[in-house]
Each structure stands twice: as structure tokens, then as C-alpha cells.
Design a protein around this nucleic acid. Structure first.
Length: 292
DNA sequence: CACTTGACCTGTCCGC
DNA sequence: TGCGGACAGGTCAAGT
């Protein structure tokens, strides 16, 4: 579910809502979501204070006092939602997707000293929340392999194009989804960016010209920034740190728009399967040019 | 090493 | 309304 813009939106919200709060209690419903020595870690967290919230790729890092960091991956259906002492009843805020918390998908609850709570919800249990010494976080396997952040200041079209050298023989959509190439792109933004650059998702990386990479780079930054501005994409599960939906999908050009007109040429958007994922394209704007 | 596929889970939607 | 199967935004372990 959450890709870079969604995770960044959650990060911003958490930074505002939980920094300075002290953990008073921790509970969890399954070790799968809270895997490292769950009971001990839950105890160990008590008394620690939140000092900051960072993001790398689609991973959130909640920095705590004592040089520890809670690392969370939301995977497909994870949510991190903060609630003050007065828990909203079901459907109270109209832009919220969730009601009273905890609910049946709540996996971990952090209760703060002032009685407010941070809930880690995850319907499919693919996500996880793990405690690491802050200095160890860069040594996590995923962190060591993940590619550059596409919105960093020093990230240029040339750097971007160079990220793909190892993936010459795969299609561009699979390469964009590969977190070791570039960080943070998932299925929604891969489709949106390819439409923007007028590139068919099955085009092999080696068949792309440098000017196509420049176009992809521009579209990538544009789409990610626009989505962050809109609070991300809510398809079914995603909500921000206050439980609110994001509105990017009402600006999406192809994603979830099967059979609707392409905003550029009016041709019906088609849905296919590429790299094992549902893939949306305009058959007229995004022609597949086979290598000679 | 590069590349593809299936597995991990639960819930929902679609066709019969 | 019930039931089976396909599918859902991510990643990793296997397989070739």
C-alpha cells in the first residue's frame, strides 16, 4: 500500500504528533508484527521518549531516547495512527477510514504517559515494527541495499539513469519497482510516471534512450511531489497519522482508471499484468517499441 | 549475478 | 445468499 508519498505523509504527521512523548506501555497481538523478542522489547521501551521521526525509502524510523530506534515497514496494509485521549467514535471525522481504536487489525499499541496512543494497524500482517540501536539501523540488510532517495537535492537525471545499469535486461516497470535501483517507488507511481513519460512498462531498460530517462526522472519527481502535497493515495487501506485519507488518486492519470479515457488522448486505459502487478497504460500514448 | 515467480496474510469483490 | 477464485499498493526466498 504505502509508497514514498504515503510514508512521507505519515512521517510528517508523526513528527508533529508524537515527538516529546514518553512511552508508558506497549502491547501487541502477534509476534509476527512485533518480531524481535516481543515481550522483552515491549518492557524495554517503557520510559523512552520520542525524539524524532525519519523516513528512508518506505521505512519509518521513530528515534527514541537511549539511542534506540523503532523501525517500521507498513508493507501493503499497515497504518500508524495517533489518537489523543479522546478516541473518536466510528466515522466521526468524515475523511477518516477507521473508527474506534484499537480495532481487529491493531497489531501494536504504544500508550504514552499522557494517555494518548499510537496504533500500528495491519490487516494482512506483512508489516513489522522492530527495535534497533540507532547506530545499527544503517546495517539492516534492506538499508544497505536500498537505492538513492529520488527527492534528495543532489539526485539528478544522470544519477537516476546510472541507477539502472545493473538492470538492462528487465522491463522498466520491474526496474522502477526494484527498491535497490531507486527508493520509494511502488505500483501506483510506477504506472503514473510511465504514463507521464509516454513509455510502455514492458520496454526493456536497455532500449531506453538517455532522453527518455531524463523524461522519466522529471515525471518521477513531479508525481512524487504532487502526491506528497495531496497527502498520498488512498486506494483501500492507506491513512495518515491522524487516520485521514490522501487525495492523490483523484489526480491520477491511469492508476485505477481502467476503461476510463486517457487524459491526454481520450483512448481507453487498459489494465494488464506486468512484473506480476496490475498495470495501467494508455495503449495509444505508451506504444511498445520492440528492439530491432 | 540478473531475472522471474511464488509465498507471506486477510479481506473483498465478482461470477456462478 | 453462498461459495470458489482472483486480486490488492511490498518485499524476500527460492527457482532458473
Amino acid at each position: 500500500m504505502p509508497e514514498l508519498p504515503e510514508v512521507e505523509t505519515v512521517r510528517t504527521g508523526l513528527e508533529r504528533l508524537i515527538v516529546g512523548r514518553t512511552i508508558a506501555d506497549v502491547s501487541f497481538d502477534t509476534p509476527k508484527s512485533f518480531p524481535n523478542d516481543s515481550e522483552k522489547v515491549a518492557q524495554f521501551l517503557v520510559g523512552m521518549q520520542v525524539q524524532g521521526v525519519r523516513r528512508r525509502a518506505k521505512v519509518l524510523m521513530i528515534d527514541l531516547s537511549s539511542a534506540y530506534t523503532l523501525v517500521t515497514h507498513l508493507k501493503m496494509t499497515g497504518q500508524l495512527v495517533y489518537r489523543g485521549k479522546q478516541n473518536f467514535g466510528a466515522g466521526h471525522p468524515t475523511d477518516s477510514l477507521i473508527g474506534e481504536l484499537p480495532d481487529r487489525s491493531t497489531r501494536v499499541t504504544l500508550t504514552f504517559a499522557d494517555g494518548s496512543c499510537l496504533y500500528f494497524n495491519d490487516q494482512r500482517k506483512f508489516g513489522w515494527m522492530m527495535l534497533y540501536p540507532t547506530l545499527e539501523v544503517p546495517n539492516i540488510d534492506f538499508m544497505k541495499r536500498v537505492g538513492p532517495e529520488p527527492l534528495e537535492e543532489d539526485f539528478t537525471a544522470a544519477t537516476f539513469a546510472a541507477c539502472f545499469v545493473r538492470r538492462k535486461n528487465t522491463n522498466i516497470k520491474a526496474a522502477l519497482l526494484d527498491q535497490t535501483v531507486v527508493a520509494g517507488v511502488g505500483n501506483i507511481y510506477a504506472d503514473e510516471v510511465l504514463w507521464g513519460a509516454k513509455i510502455h512498462p514492458l520496454t526493456l531498460v536497455k532500449d531506453l534512450s538517455y532522453s527518455q530517462f531524463e523524461l522519466l526522472f522529471t515525471e518521477l519527481q513531479y508525481v512524487l511531489r504532487l502526491s506528497i502535497e495531496k497527502g498520498g493515495s488512498t486506494d483501500r487501506n492507506y491513512v495518515d497519522a491522524e487516520g485521514k485519507k490522501g487525495s492523490y488518486l483523484s489526480f491520477a492519470k491511469v492508476f485505477r482508471r481502467e476503461n476510463l479515457p486517457c487524459p491526454r488522448c481520450g483512448t481507453s486505459i487498459v489494465k494488464t499484468r506486468v512484473a506480476g502487478r496490475g498495470t495501467h497504460t494508455c495503449p495509444k500514448c505508451q506504444k511498445l517499441h520492440l528492439a530491432k
